[in-house]
Design a binder for these strands. Sequence first.
RNA 1: GCCCUUGUAGCUCAGUGGAUAGAGCACUGCCCUCCGGAGGCAGGUGUCGCAGGUUCGAAUCCUGCCAAGGGCGCCA
Length: 554
Amino acid sequence: MTPAVLADLVRSTASAVLTERGLDTAVLPERVTVERPRHPEHGDYATNLALQIGKRVGMAPRDLAKAIADRLAEADGVASAEVAGPGFLNVRLAAAAQGELVRRVLTAGERYGHGDAFAGVSINLEFVSANPTGPLHLGGTRWAAVGDVLGRVLAAQGAKVTREYYFNDAGAQIDRFVASLVAAAKGEPTPEDGYAGAYIAELAAEVLRQEPDVLSLPDEQRDETFRRLGVQLMFDEIKRSLHEFGTDFDVFFHEDSLHRSGAVAAVVDRLKSSNLLYHADGAWWIRSSEFGDDKDRVVIKSDGAPAYIAADIAYLENKLSRGFDLCIYMLGADHHGYVGRLKAAASALGSDPDVVEVMIGQMVNLVSGGQPVRMSKRAGTVVTMDDLVGAVGVDAARYELTRYSVDSPIDIDLDLLRKHSNENPVYYVQYAHARLASLLRNAAELGIELAEHAEGVDLGLLDHPREGDLIRTIGEFPTVVRRAAELREPHRIARYLEELASAYHKFYDACRVLPQGDEPATPLTAARLALCAAARQVLANGLGLLGVSAPERM
RNA sequence: GCCCUUGUAGCUCAGUGGAUAGAGCACUGCCCUCCGGAGGCAGGUGUCGCAGGUUCGAAUCCUGCCAAGGGCGCCA
């Protein structure tokens, strides 16, 4: 029996009790919450339903709980149901009913944990979107990991997810990038406000290699060549890093294309007649202050040039025209001021501001010896995605960056990570998987075959407390995935996997699976082997959602 | 000044109305002649930043205060 099935059973039982007494069943929540109590004495599962609705139907919570418990205890698969404390209802499942979950996992396979909470919902998920003026640094790396996992989680819940990266390849920062390349190619010092990393010199050299005569071109053509090739090379570099990091996008959208196509000018012209844009001081403003922004923002500057936000509006219009139900933006905390602007843009475009959802994540800081180190391109203290991956590998990097809430700032000490990379909890989880894989290999060598979907296996034999804990932990996975999607909190996956790995290690320590010496395989062997196969499947599914490998050996 | 986020064990962090607040790291001591010891067991650490409020019940919700980080450009 799954927690969801039990929840439905509790609900229908409560409904029958209320009806019997002529009480209103409308007070029942749509989804009854059934949770795993902290203490084993409180049963396998507990619900506070009677506490929630007792007063509203005029019954003492304990009396109501008692009435539900008495009836629930008679139900198939329920071993006992009792009232505790102020009105909690503690339930124990029959081992056979609980063990069925193992079969369910084995039958569902890779799809165990998938759900339909977002079935039919089309979501645009924009993340990273770092300027193409340099390699991805640690901040962008965090969003690459978190965004990718969120995308996988939403997709697992049935959403149609389009992962998108917005290249800001227009505007002043690109001009500075180009000027920096030109200076480097000419062997001149980096201009004021330019970019100074070693990668600039390398890019400049590559441009010179491809276009040896570029420096003798007229300035405008020369700059255009550096712009075209330099930006392209940087794009390729960023895409390569992301791909090696296990993060791929469906769409790389170029800001430049919005200007070239006239989309920016067109949408601004159209909006000038709406009441969300107004003319003042020679410029056009958007009333973003009505959507939580500090003040209104300039869309068209008094010199007639579009401000940055103008392209944002055109970009959102483009997204909306592609029919997304929801547009999620993942931004760093230093961009939280965007929230109001983007919502204002959605409203100006005639959409519900709620189609725009902005996730704000805290920063990634570099520390060394406990002291914060400011990343500076000029000082050469920028740590890139490639640096991090080079130090600890993709699995550890992704895991480290996704096991924390995005609301929590992350401090990264590269030296410490290198030195203590084995302390990363990812190894704890991966080890559990490798250990299971090894066990299943050993079983096969002993000639013990697990029947497909554990057919004919008596799963009711799994009545050891550690077995029960492991089964119930496995049973939580679908809820965890759903919650991670609904709350946009991918870190729940990693935290859950640590719990699952722990439950497995504890089970392994207490319960011998394979026969020893010349002992024959027993029905219990088969049942435990099935449980192991299910645990391995869930670990693999969870690691898959994180984009982290599930090793057979390590 | 205004806005956003955060404040939980020595450290890093989980825990968005439930029962005695958890995990990893760090410290101490145990546990395999046989399934992977990258594991398990045991030991103790808390004014959940502070003060009020809401209710059967608050780390969780509301208000105020304190502290930290970030943001408040006709830059992008």
